[in-house]
Design a protein around this nucleic acid. Structure first.
Lengths: 164, 164
DNA sequence: GGCAATGTGTTATGTAATAACATAATTGCT
DNA sequence: AGCAATTATGTTATTACATAACACATTGCC
């Protein structure tokens, strides 16, 4: 956690996942990688584990600091794992926070096509909610300009229900 | 300019503004600030000038390096000016590039309400096109979650017409 | 003039990310 | 199994991005 508090209420609503659910998500991720001929190695798994542990976006250096029980990892180890996990669609980078959050498309047995995800990011408690949206207006404007879209970043900053 | 070229064609289509147009935009910005009881000071004006000089997002340290004819500015000077200009709606921060681009709402006599701007960002030539969009789906999802949106970042990365 | 508010200059530091190169593990081939 | 090619990791160093803190200057207002 690392949020600047502009409020006095507690933030317990920003839950952690319990270890059982984390384990389930990790083995599901493992399976998904193998299905695509990619290797889910130890540092990748550890990085994903640390990100799944929060339901708020996690900073790269928080992962680095917590990576080993007895000391920090080297930055490239973690940045490489983050790049891999993002390519696999297991995590998303939150540009406006320089942080990473687990993709919710893989939670609770959901199966979601590769999607342009949008995020509702609470400035108070730091929580993140992923929502799937289509963007007809952007597609239309892009088409009108002859622009070929490869990927879209869509992040709404504000206050979540619990923090309003 | 600071774009990684994945192509061999030229990028002349990423025009610079001529000095006459820049001057017009600067005095328009000056007027706009005064109308709101804010001061358009020398470092703010210089920062805006350097950003208007490109039609692609400009890095903070590019502004810093070019600030004085004979040497760099100190980072806080420029970062403070950038924060001010963004608050005034004269520039936008592009999160996915860590860069800043002039707001097109003030170009060519346009008068635009404060808007959630979206950007079409070319990965090849670095050019930026600002488009105004409404986001009914996001508004809807936010409302459904009880989320109060304060501001939205919407950035499409891809290839512009000239670079496809 | 004198005070409060706002803006700037300056030093130092904090935070985020990658380059480059050496070593190790895995895969596929014969 | 032996070997080469590929992929991944370890490690050191450096680069890029951004702000804290405090001193000084300028402006607006009474």
């Amino acid at each position: 956690m690392s949020m600047s508090h502009a409020c006095d209420h507690d933030h317990d609503h920003a839950h952690h996942l319990d270890s059982g659910r984390i384990a389930a998500r990790l083995s599901e991720a493992q399976r998904l990688c193998e299905a695509q001929g990619e290797r889910m190695t130890a540092p990748r798994l550890r990085t994903l584990e640390l990100i799944l542990g929060e339901n708020a976006p996690v900073k790269a250096y928080d992962v680095i600091d917590r990576f080993h029980p007895d000391g920090a990892a080297k930055p490239p180890t973690v940045y490489r794992a983050l790049a891999f996990l993002e390519q696999m669609g297991l995590i998303h980078r939150i540009e406006s926070l320089n942080a990473f959050v687990a993709c919710q498309g893989h939670a609770d047995g959901q199966v979601v096509q590769p999607h342009a995800a949008a995020f509702l990011l609470c400035d108070c408690c730091g929580s993140s909610e992923e929502v799937a949206v289509s963007l007809p207006e952007i597609d239309q404007q892009a088409a009108a300009s002859g622009f070929e879209t490869r990927r879209v970043t869509l992040e709404a900053r504000g206050l979540c229900k619990a923090c309003r």
